[in-house]
Design a protein around this nucleic acid. Structure first.
Length: 781
DNA sequence: GATTTTACGTA
DNA sequence: CGTACGTAAAATCT
């Protein structure tokens, strides 16, 4: 059936797709079936009502095998057959007669028909002029069908629709009018002085390019409007471009600007850290870190400037110029950051996320402080531990050589596969697959080895390989380079996962549930990099500064408490409340896992053996995140059937949990948005499947605890000037003089005991304290 | 030489 | 079909 244009005549938005599918063909309307559902979701998320848009496809008939190439003579789809030419002419007339403010080309075919361009990934997010209807504003994005195949694209398309909605307000094509400028030294200083002397300029954007290694500034740039900025080159091929005397004048002028003007930076944790580390200039009036603004508004999106510009601005692409002209590139970064900042303020207000934004901004200063100060390492201890680790690796390695008669690299999965599955002929173990169509992948990871050791309990090879691999892994934590001051550093990422962590698992894109992440510092590249995965055995070498001790304050059973309130488990709420109110010496009486086991197996608390308690603990943990029997079986080292029985009895004991799963799903279906107990929102845009749901179950407990901890840390830093040593998911470590530990404990208690409210009920997560000279050996305080 | 895969450490 | 994060080294691609 022919599918015609539909929607109100004269509508400001005109959506153009590719060709009708099966459903459209039957009904005679565009975007009906799956692609239609996806389009509805995307439009709704962007705040566009579908019935206010004109919608049609380039082709009016369903092509054979749903392949658009059917309407072309060539496979590249550039030489259309007469019927398609006719349809495109009809499209032209419809655009002319309806005069939409913006035509949205969805997918490559629409883009080609409207503009003659082919590459949708290159042009998405950018405004173009139509070649089909000269003067007509066209805006390109992916086809909803593409989103159906790859949900990562949903983020882009929604943002694009938001921009299209803005462009539907007026018909004019934007004119690019940025004026980046490279200045000589006198000119640059004059510019900086002019900035200081101009009261009408309240805010400036600031950006640095730096050399690697060491991150010394090589280009510095400021922008004072969405179109104008000036940059200056400090280093040319590693050598200064100006004499020291002039450089001093330059930095003095920079310091004056940064002291007096409000400042916009993309990623202040980098730029402001570099300024503090190398120039001792602190950016005091940071009003907007655009990285944080973007994270708060769109936590699931990429946050680099190129992406943000495609969402927020009508500027021409400039990121590709970074190699050609670093100075102009730097200047465009600063100029465009001004425009992005303006856009973000509106978006923050529109979404009502000011509180979360201010909160995240307040984390910047302590994070900069922590990453530049670093952690002291006890070098003698490190050497001792390394030697011990070397011995362990040598011992297990020698035993393996003796046992197998081979000398192989146990860091190489291929070699272990050869040894176990070919040379020794053991049954091949595979990774779990997400679906049956997926290819089976051979595995020699810890899980596979454990499985084999259960199947062949008499053969020592598996446990030996496991021990050897563990020893190698542990040793890697001691093979680190220290700074000249004997310290290690890391860079903290307030907005969660780093933007380049793209290729991990296909599907979702950035997640970031308000916990920080830790990674290798490029400013001070010493130590392991990630401070959030140091095993307990390696923590002994991390020590407080001279004359100080560490005080650890950690939230007790934090996520389990949040879950108890979310699902309204009265028994558990009582338990946590009682523990909270109990005298310190009585606290250990209140043990969630023992209670869990006692309920599950119907035995008195006193009768719960350590084995039963372990089952209770594992079950609670696994169920809070909706784990399956398979995982449970490997975790508990038991049969699948037993794992299923355990799950059943857990859910019998605690039916509220599954009711809560249902409520979360309902909420997702309604708004696709969850809000944690501190008001932070997160959109879940993936396909409605178990993966999405599990991620959603984890969101509230995980992000609430993350925000709670960070709020406490900021308050300890800001109002009590505490020396924050490290934060770690649910613990704050501070360092202080050994005589001040009792005082520190009380202060930490006062900032950390923050009431949370859910469903008109208020509760507080308890805090435990420890003290010690090093991170590995701490005792109750 | 750059990118992807595999494995494994933390809460 | 726990979630979230990062890094090292091997394997693979170009």
């Amino acid at each position: 059936m022919l599918v015609n244009l539909c929607g109100p005549p004269g509508a400001p938005i005109f959506l153009v797709g590719e060709a009708p599918g099966e459903e459209e063909d039957r009904i005679g309307l565009p975007f009906q079936g799956r692609a239609g559902t996806v389009l509805n979701i995307l439009l709704a998320q962007a705040g566009i009502a579908r019935n206010t848009c004109l919608i049609k496809n380039v082709a009016k008939l369903r092509p054979q095998a749903n392949k658009i190439s059917h309407f072309f003579f060539d496979s590249q789809c550039t030489n259309p057959k007469p019927e398609l030419v006719e349809w495109i002419e009809e499209l032209r007339q419809e655009i002319v007669s309806n005069k939409p403010n913006v035509v949205v080309a969805m997918g490559a075919t629409a883009l080609w028909a409207l503009t003659g361009e082919k590459k949708i990934s290159k042009f998405r997010g950018y405004v173009m002029e139509s070649t089909l209807v000269p003067g007509q504003k066209v805006f390109a994005t992916y086809h909803p069908q593409a989103v159906g195949y790859d949900w990562k694209l949903a983020f882009y398309v929604i943002m694009d629709f938001v921009k299209a909605k803005y462009h539907s307000g007026f018909p004019q094509l934007p004119v690019s009018k940025t004026h980046p400028k490279e200045a000589m030294i006198e000119e640059f200083i004059t510019y900086l002085e002019w900035l200081v002397a101009s009261p009408e300029i309240e805010k400036v954007a600031f950006d640095l390019e730096t050399t690697s290694p060491g991150c010394h500034p090589s280009v510095i740039g400021f922008a004072h409007s969405k179109s104008e900025g000036v940059s200056f080159r400090l280093l040319m091929n590693g050598y200064p471009t100006i004499p020291e005397r002039e450089e001093l004048l330059l930095w003095q002028a920079v310091a004056r600007v940064l002291a007096q003007k409000k400042c916009i930076i993309q990623s202040a944790l980098f730029d402001a850290s570099v300024m503090l580390q190398h120039l001792h200039i602190y950016v005091r009036k940071l009003v907007m870190d655009t990285l944080i603004g973007a994270h708060v508004c769109w936590p699931e999106c990429p946050r680099d400037l190129g992406f943000l510009a495609s969402i927020c601005l009508d500027t021409a692409p400039w990121k590709h110029t970074s190699k050609e002209d670093q100075v102009i590139y730097n200047c465009l970064d600063a100029i465009n950051d001004v425009g992005i900042e303006e856009f973000l303020w509106k978006e923050i207000a529109r979404q009502g996320v000011e509180k979360t934004f201010n909160f995240e901004m307040s984390e910047i200063e302590p994070a900069i402080y922590m990453q530049l100060r670093g952690l002291k390492i006890n070098e003698e201890e490190r050497v001792r531990l390394l030697e011990k680790a070397n011995t362990d690796v040598a011992d297990t390695g020698a035993a393996l050589k003796l046992l197998t008669g081979r000398d192989i690299n146990f860091n190489a999965p291929k070699q272990i596969q050869q040894l176990l599955y070919i040379d020794l002929g053991f049954p091949v173990q595979y990774h779990r697959r997400k679906s049956v169509e997926e290819e089976r992948k051979i595995s020699v990871d810890a899980k596979a080895l454990k499985m084999l050791s259960i199947k062949f309990p008499k053969d020592p090879v598996f446990n030996l390989v496991l021990a050897h691999k563990r020893a190698i892994k542990l040793r890697s934590f001691f093979k680190i380079k220290l700074s000249p001051e004997g310290r290690v550093h890391s860079s903290f990422n307030v907005t969660g996962s780093s933007e380049k962590a793209e290729g991990k698992d296909e599907g979702e894109g950035q997640k970031s549930f308000s916990r920080w992440s830790s990674s290798k510092s490029i400013i001070l590249p010493y130590g392991n990099g990630n401070l959030y995965n140091i095993p307990p055995q390696a923590r002994k070498m991390y020590v407080a500064d001279k004359g100080k001790v560490l005080v650890q304050a950690d939230y007790v059973q934090a996520e389990a408490v949040v879950v108890a309130y979310l699902i309204n488990d009265t028994r558990l709420k009582r338990l946590f409340k009682d523990r909270f109110n109990a005298a310190p010496e009585d606290k250990e009486k209140y043990d969630v896992h023992r209670t869990t086991a006692s309920m599950m197996f119907g035995v008195a608390e006193a009768e719960v053996t350590p084995e039963l308690r372990k089952i209770g603990k594992t079950l609670r943990h696994a169920c809070n995140y909706s784990a399956g029997p398979m995982v449970l079986a490997t975790r508990l080292n038991c049969e699948m059937a037993d794992a299923k029985k355990f799950l059943q009895s857990y859910h019998n004991m605690c039916p509220q949990l599954q009711l809560w799963y249902g409520r979360v799903q309902e909420e997702l279906r309604k708004t696709r948005t969850l809000t944690n107990l501190l008001g932070r929102k997160h959109r879940f845009l993936g396909r409605f499947d178990d993966e999405l749901f599990r991620s959603a179950y984890a969101y509230n407990p995980q992000s609430t605890v993350g925000d709670l901890l960070n709020a406490s840390m900021v308050s300890a830093y800001r109002f009590y000037k505490m020396d924050i040593w490290l934060t770690l998911y649910d613990a704050i470590y501070i360092q202080c003089s050994p005589t001040e530990t009792a005082e520190a404990k009380e202060t930490l208690r006062s900032v950390m005991l923050r009431p949370l409210t859910y469903n008109y009920e208020t509760f507080t997560i308890d805090v435990d304290f420890k003290v010690g000279e090093n991170w590995g050996e701490m005792t109750t305080l």
